[in-house]
């Protein structure tokens, strides 16, 4: 069982959250000319790192906010959590 510290509610069990994938993926800017390659990178291609990984989770059965979590994908150790609008430094 993972324990994730929601920046809004504090430490909660994994059961309250749902996963949203790689948090470093950025949607190409609206209105800009986008190459197929950029669009592929946004929709399909993922690095899927082994080790420290910034990812999105939603506190679905809690405050329903999206948050950013830095987790080790091999050990599940959680290093840091941020609100959705906080930048990954």
């Amino acid at each position: 069982m993972l324990h994730i510290k929601c920046p809004h509610c504090g430490m909660r069990s994994q059961n309250e959250f749902s996963y949203g994938g790689d948090a470093t993926v950025k949607r190409p800017e609206l209105g800009e000319e986008i190459s197929d390659h950029d669009w592929d990178n946004f929709v399909y291609n993922r690095k899927s790192l082994r080790g420290k990984h910034w990812e999105l989770w939603q506190h679905l059965s809690g405050c329903r906010q999206w948050i950013k979590v830095q987790r080790d994908t091999a050990t599940h150790e959680i290093f840091k959590t941020l609100k959705a609008n906080e930048d990954i430094s």
């Binding site: 069982m1 059961n15 994938g21 990984h53 990812e55 994908t73 091999a74």
Partner: peptide, 13 residues
């Protein structure tokens, strides 16, 4: 399990 993982072992939920 529902989130990226290389753990080769699962979680209870």
């Amino acid at each position: 399990d529902g989130y990226n993982s290389y753990a080769q072992r699962g979680n209870l939920p």
